[in-house]
Design a protein around this nucleic acid. Structure first.
Lengths: 173, 173
DNA sequence: GCGAACTAGTTTGGTACCGAACGACCACGC
DNA sequence: GCGTGGTCGTTCGGTACCAAACTAGTTCGC
């Protein structure tokens, strides 16, 4: 909210109730409630989004959140080495191995060893994987619109920008 | 792999590069990129926050993210029934059972059956649990400040408010 | 009272996820 | 050549998490 520096309103929603309880419990200790609030809301929003996406969109296609992410990244970026794919999907490489194996068993992606360096493996969509993501993504994108429908376009951009600052500040290395 | 059939613009940052790739790949299909952006940034930010919190703060105390959350909720709200605790921690009740058992083995919380209704169980901090959360929370809160240090106070409040709209819109059921 | 419907918590089966250990492979020294 | 170190991907051990089945306890109809 643009009104800065104001004492907490006697608001009626749950989050502010929660904050009031915290303040009452912890008294005047100099904790950073603004940071607490934004971080905990990030986590709750992410959990809500993921649960709902898996339940309402992805499970009908036999996809997990991670599996969908892999298909999506391969769709947009094309064939990719494992390490790069893990980085792009924001997953540990060991995690990726298992999920790629699952997708491979489902016939949605295929692995290929590189001839120039036989340690490396590239992953790419199969024809079925391409059909799958082309079918699922529009539905998933509608779901994303619905999840964020209480934000205006400008607000979405602002939120994305603020979140990007948190991600880039701490995602490196 | 960069886009193969369009001229890549000089990139300013990675997120925008990503979006440009998406647009180049998908052409002019009417997808909602603003919603896509905000949702995926929520998820990436949450994953980054959690990983970093567990690695840099919580693991030193033998706590997981979920375990810490339980201690925190009990600290602020006091003794609580299992169902209410699960709701407050945003966890499935079955998940909570296991995590409370872990915390119980660590001596940080204790369960108690209610006499009035012997199906119900309350959970509360032990003395050790109280010491633990009193020791860890200030450090965790500093971590939260650090994670969000690239946002001003007003920006944190705006972000928290926008995220709250996403949570409350879809958390009910 | 007494069994049927309900409810709170636990257990179960399965996936996802991480970090660390491992094994295959490459790129150098000598 | 042939080890030595580095770098891939995979495997392994463990926790976290969910949804659904289950169990013990309560309440309500009669």
């Amino acid at each position: 909210m643009p009104n800065d520096n104001s004492t907490p309103d006697p608001a009626s929603d749950k989050m502010l109730q929660n904050e009031r309880d915290i303040r009452a419990r912890l008294g005047d200790q100099p904790f950073d409630f603004d940071s607490l609030h934004v971080i905990s809301n990030i986590y709750r929003a992410a959990a809500a989004v993921r649960r709902r996406a898996e339940r309402e969109v992805l499970s009908g296609y036999g996809l997990s959140w991670g599996g969908f992410t892999i298909l999506w990244v391969l769709w947009v970026w094309g064939e990719m080495e494992t390490a790069q794919l893990a980085n792009e999907c924001d997953l540990a490489k060991g995690t990726l191995t298992g999920m790629v194996s699952t997708l491979e068993q489902q016939g949605l992606v295929q692995r290929e060893r590189m001839q120039t360096d036989r340690r490396r493996v590239t992953v790419d969509l199969t024809t079925e994987g391409l059909s799958m993501i082309e079918e699922v993504f529009p539905i998933f994108n509608k779901f994303e619109s619905d999840m964020s429908a209480d934000l205006s376009t400008d607000e979405k951009r602002i939120a994305a920008e603020y979140l990007r600052r948190i991600i880039t500040r701490h995602d490196e290395d």
